[in-house]
Design a protein around this nucleic acid. Structure first.
Lengths: 229, 229
DNA sequence: TTAGAAATGAAAAGTATTATTAAATATAAA
DNA sequence: TTTATATTTAATAATACTTTTCATTTCTAA
C-alpha cells in the first residue's frame, strides 16, 4: 500500500538510506534506492519516479553534473540533500533546476513537508489554467487581475511579473540571480536590493501580516519561494 | 438539436477532437472539425462558426499566423488551446486577437465556462438586443448611441471605436499596442500618444470625475482596462 | 552566544510614463 | 470655398513607478 507517489533516493550513505526508508515508507511513499549517480540516472529513466532525493556528495561523480544530466529529460521535482552548507553549492544546484534543498542533518518532518510542497499540484491539474489559484491568491492571466480573498489588488507591471514568476514556480526555491535575470535581465543579476524592495512591496499588498509572510518566503542567502499552502 | 451555437475546432490531435466532440455535443453545441490550419481557415469562411477553438501547435503552419489570418476578417471569439504554458506565446496570441486561452491538459468544465463567457452577449444579439449595459454606461451598437446614466453622450468615430473596444473586453487589460493596432492599424502601434489623447477625451465625456476615473483605468506601462463595476 | 552578514522597512531622489491642453492640420459638410 | 468638426502634433504638467539610501531587525555560522 502507498499514497501513489514513488520516490527515488540517490545517496551513498547507508545510514541516510535506512533513515529515509523507514520514514518515507511510514508515510506510504514507494521508495527506490540508488547508491551512486550512474545507477541513479538509470533508475530514474526506468522507473520514472515522482520525485528524486539527490545527495550532492556522491562517490562516483559530482552531484551537480548528475543533476544537470537528469534535468535534460526529467521533469518531476528534485530535492537536493547536502552536507555542504556552502551557499555556492546550493545556489548552483537550484540554478541547475533543483526544486528545493535540505542540508544534512535534516529533520524528517521538514523533509516530508518539503516533499509534499514539491509534489503539490502534481495531482491537481489546475497548474495550467488561465486562472490560477494559490491559497487565497488568484491570478487571471488573461485579464491580468490579481485577487487576494476575492479582493482585487492593484500591482505595477514589475510587481505583476515578479509575482507570476514566483507563482509559476509554486513551492520551488528561486535564486536571487535567477529571478533578477528573468525580470530585469542578465545585467541586473547582482542587484539583489531591487528584489528586496519589490518583495517587500508585494508582501505589503498580498500578505495578511507582512512581518510574518505566509506566501512569499525568504531563503536567506539563496532566494525566495512562493508557498500556496 | 443544439443550443444554436456552432463551434469550429482546429486541432490535429485525435484524442482532443474526440474529447471535444463528446463534451461539446453533450452541451448542445454544433461542432465542426478541421485538422490543420488551411482547412480551418476555409471552414471558418464557409461555415461562419460562432466560436473557434484553435490549437497553437498545428502541423502545417504556426498557430499564431493562422490566428492573424483569421482575425483579418473573423469577428467571433477565438479561444486558444496550447501545450505551451510559456507566457510569451500566450501574450502574443492575446495581442493577435485571441479572446482567451487554455493550456492542455484542460478541464472540460473550465473550457465550457470560458466558452460561455466568450459567447455571452452573442445570445443577446440574437434576441435583437443591440443595447448593452456596462455599469452606468450603455451602448446601442445598432444606432451607435452611447448613454451615461440615461444621458446621451456625443462621441466622434474614433472615440466610439475606442470605447466599444474597451467595453467588449470589459475587465481585461488591453495593451497599448493592441488597442492602437485595432483602432488605427498596425503602423500606428507605437503612437501611444494618440491613445492618451483619446482616453482623456473619453474620460472627460464619461467619467463623473475625470481625475479619478472609475471606468477607464490605467495600467501603467501596460495599457488600459474598462471596469464596469 | 555573539559578531558579521543578510534582509527588511521606510522614505527620498531620480526616471519614466501618463494626463492635459491647445494649436496646427486634415476632413467633411454646407 | 467657407465653416464646422475631428484628428494629429507638440509642449508642459501631473502622477506613478523605480532606484537608491540608510537605519534597524533578523538570520547564520562559528
Amino acid at each position: 500500500m502507498n499514497n501513489g507517489f514513488s520516490i527515488l533516493v540517490i545517496d551513498d550513505e547507508i545510514q541516510i538510506r535506512k533513515l529515509l526508508e523507514i520514514s518515507l515508507e511510514a508515510n506510504d511513499y514507494k521508495v527506490l534506492f540508488a547508491i551512486d549517480g550512474k545507477v541513479g540516472i538509470t533508475m530514474a529513466a526506468s522507473h520514472q519516479p515522482d520525485l528524486i532525493l539527490l545527495d550532492l556528495g556522491l562517490p562516483d561523480e559530482d552531484g551537480q553534473e548528475i543533476l544537470v544530466k537528469l534535468r535534460e529529460w526529467f521533469q518531476n521535482p528534485i530535492i537536493i540533500l547536502t552536507v555542504k552548507s556552502a551557499e555556492e553549492e546550493i545556489v548552483k544546484a537550484l540554478d541547475h533546476g533543483a526544486n528545493d534543498y535540505l542540508t544534512k542533518p535534516f529533520r524528517t518532518q521538514e523533509l516530508l513537508a518539503r516533499m509534499r510542497t514539491a509534489l503539490r499540484g502534481k495531482t491537481s491539474q489546475n497548474k495550467n489554467e488561465s486562472i490560477m489559484q494559490f491559497g487565497a491568491v488568484s491570478v487571471d492571466f488573461v485579464s491580468r487581475m490579481v485577487k487576494v480573498k476575492e479582493e482585487v489588488i492593484k500591482l505595477t507591471a514589475t510587481e505583476y511579473s515578479l509575482l507570476t514568476l514566483l507563482l509559476k514556480n509554486d513551492g520551488r526555491v528561486l535564486t536571487h540571480q535567477y529571478i533578477l535575470k528573468e525580470i530585469w535581465g542578465q545585467s541586473y543579476s547582482e542587484q539583489t536590493q531591487y528584489l528586496r524592495v519589490f518583495v517587500a512591496q508585494l508582501r505589503k499588498k498580498l500578505e495578511e501580516d507582512p512581518n510574518r509572510p505566509k506566501y512569499i518566503l525568504t531563503e536567506s542567502g539563496v532566494g525566495y519561494r512562493f508557498n500556496s499552502g
